[in-house]
Write a protein that binds this DNA or RNA. Structure first.
Lengths: 372, 372
DNA sequence: TTTAGCACTCGAAGGCTAGGAGTGCTAAAC
DNA sequence: GTTTAGCACTCCTAGCCTTCGAGTGCTAAA
């Protein structure tokens, strides 16, 4: 867990600063928001309901706990916080977290040192997308003590460098494809009719000569056009084009299935000891159903900027006690994939937003570098 | 969990049959072992300490609970079972499980239907070692509701079918290697000096022409011999041989790292809700340290037959509440890798032994088929 | 050798109480 | 009008006690 010093620093860095910045907000609203901020911070760090007394102390002691209590009652009335029971302190509701996040989101300070430290993790030795993705999900989970999730770049961002076909048996081949980012994709493809070795060579050469450095999607498109337009008589060309197309389409199709990578489930288990068992079960269910996770991450989100889904804002009921923070990354300057963190609603949003945002930048830069 | 009908069947199939088979064992010892068997079975299925009354009932009611109690006291004295507290039933100790396992191990009946059912899982569509391994670890975990672990065949069993080198930058290449089992291995290799495309081609051709269908280990050996024996003057040959060797050695080295695959951790999490949190934590630690797991599975075990390690028989203290059952499998008729299951000592050993043994057979057969 | 009988043990579950953390409200102070 | 001291009230937590019963171990009889 995070130590209180770190929290206090965050507090000053973002939320508090925001709150004391003059806008058209009334002084009362300002303090209200400030108190909400303290409740969120304290609850996130301690995990126990926050009392008025504690907030008063955290605020420097210029306000009495009774005053805080009055404001807390209002906050509760407005739905930002709630009570587990009469004689307990307050905890933030989803709405409370949402308000908090909305405020800090526009005020995130990416710290130089932090960014530097993370940047150094992407050493020269990392040279493929796969390595970048693994490293990134590891970093997310390590930094935030929650599950880190990274999606592969959509197939649109995959460019061909080299292809090879290896015979498996009379009608089956193994297609091995090297991308411009030096990632290797391979799949077994059943071909149209029996092929001799020379024909295999011709297909290989055809693709390598004509389509090097092009996006797989475009290659597939070109080939499809070719298949439709080639004359019926030209059987040989037709066969080559058809089989090339089949290879491409198989690779593309298979690629759509394996497009997500995650790490850090262990943090949930550590929590589950003390916390909610149901939540842990739900999370693990989501992670064991790859499709659900992929949908969760895709979900027609904008690629730009940070997305935060808190508790019941998530479509899946299984995530009603979790928050999901995601951010897009780019490849070839275009939107490519997403990365993010999944954890309990009781999460250090400030740190999470900073880290995910920062890694999104780093990963995009690194991919550009690999790709150059 | 397993239903009691299944347990009763197992009971009759193995342990009970064994116990009533005449050997030189005294009638008293025989019954003692039988009672131990019932305690193990009942405890494994229910998870609660087993009372004398329950055992008496399970044994058909011809014996009174008082008699059972007497024998239980002896069994406890001998260390086979123990008490959580005075007024509780008995649970097996590691020694108790050990005795039980020793008895049933030689009496396992592989059921036709069961074997058939598992065999059907290895459909025609599975054509690479990777797929076989994934499927197998999935089957282990699904059947036994515990973690299934499968090691890749040692590099000794990997034969070259085809190799390709793709340039990454001036001194770095990507080596893509297709094995005789149509698995693809690829790694980035830093070469000795800058290489032109033509030289790359020469290396590729050299390896493909001279070493196709040979074991990678032998190829590495031959190349090493060549490097040592080639004349200093013949710079070109020397360079080719050196770089070929580097490629091979990198692939071999990298291969040693990624040689294990597992599935089914979720079952531990399901258990951890009701059971021991410490054990779950320990297990997860083992699984997050790949090396530890590899050592565990390697551990100079004989490749033939089933190996069982119960509780504290395991070298690692983290596994003191777990049992590990492993079995070797073959490739090209030779010992290649291992598969197994890891779970709490409270495990259905009969079922586990049957399943692991059966899958070992199936996987060996399937690999032979792929390889032919 | 087996078993009925019985005293004994000890955990699980429920009820009870004391303590205390925290709230909400009121009335006084600023 | 806002803040705050004061106080009654709530209700959780922890500890203690009791009851209940499942299970054992022992003894003496079959």
């Amino acid at each position: 867990m995070l130590n209180s010093a770190e929290f206090r620093r965050n507090l000053q860095l973002s939320y508090i600063i925001t709150m004391t910045t003059k806008t058209k907000v009334s002084k009362k609203d300002e303090r209200k928001a400030c108190i909400l901020g303290h409740i969120v911070h304290t609850y996130v760090s301690d995990g126990t309901p926050v009392s008025s007394k504690l907030v008063a102390r955290r605020m420097g002691g210029n306000v009495s706990s009774a005053t805080i209590r009055n404001i807390m009652a209002e906050l509760e009335h407005q739905g930002y916080i709630t009570h587990p029971h009469t004689s307990a302190g307050r905890i933030p509701t989803d709405i409370g977290y949402r308000h908090y996040v909305d405020v800090i989101k526009n005020r995130i300070r990416f710290e130089r040192r932090e960014a530097q430290r993370l940047a150094e993790e992407y050493s020269k030795r990392i040279r493929t997308i796969k390595e970048v993705i693994k490293k990134t999900s590891y970093l997310i989970s390590r930094e935030l003590h929650n599950a880190g999730v990274v999606m592969w770049p959509g197939i649109e961002g995959v460019y061909l460098k080299h292809m090879d076909l290896v015979k498996v048996n009379s009608e089956t081949i193994l297609a091995v494809l090297v991308t411009m980012t030096n990632d290797v994709k391979n799949h077994i493809v059943r071909l149209d009719g029996e092929l001799k070795k020379t024909e295999l060579m011709r297909i290989t050469n055809y693709i390598n000569e004509n389509f090097r450095t092009l996006p797989l999607m475009d290659i597939s498109g070109s080939l499809r056009g070719l298949v439709n337009n080639v004359k019926e008589e030209d059987k040989e060309t037709l066969s080559i084009a058809k089989n090339s197309l089949r290879v491409m389409d198989t690779i593309i199709e298979e690629n759509l299935k394996n497009e997500i990578y995650w790490e850090g489930l262990n943090y949930f288990l550590e929590m589950s000891g003390s916390g909610d068992v149901d939540m842990t079960r739900n999370i693990l269910e989501i992670f064991s159903e790859k499709e659900e996770l992929v949908n969760l991450m895709r979900n027609e989100l904008p690629y730009e900027g940070l997305n935060v889904y808190i508790g019941n804002e998530n479509k899946s009921k299984k995530l009603s006690e979790c928050s999901v923070i995601t951010c897009g990354y780019t490849l070839h300057g275009r939107a490519a994939g997403r990365l993010g963190v999944i954890g309990p609603t009781r999460m250090d949003y400030d740190h999470a937003l900073r880290t995910v945002g920062c890694l999104s930048n780093l990963i995009s830069k690194k991919l550009a570098e690999i790709n150059s």
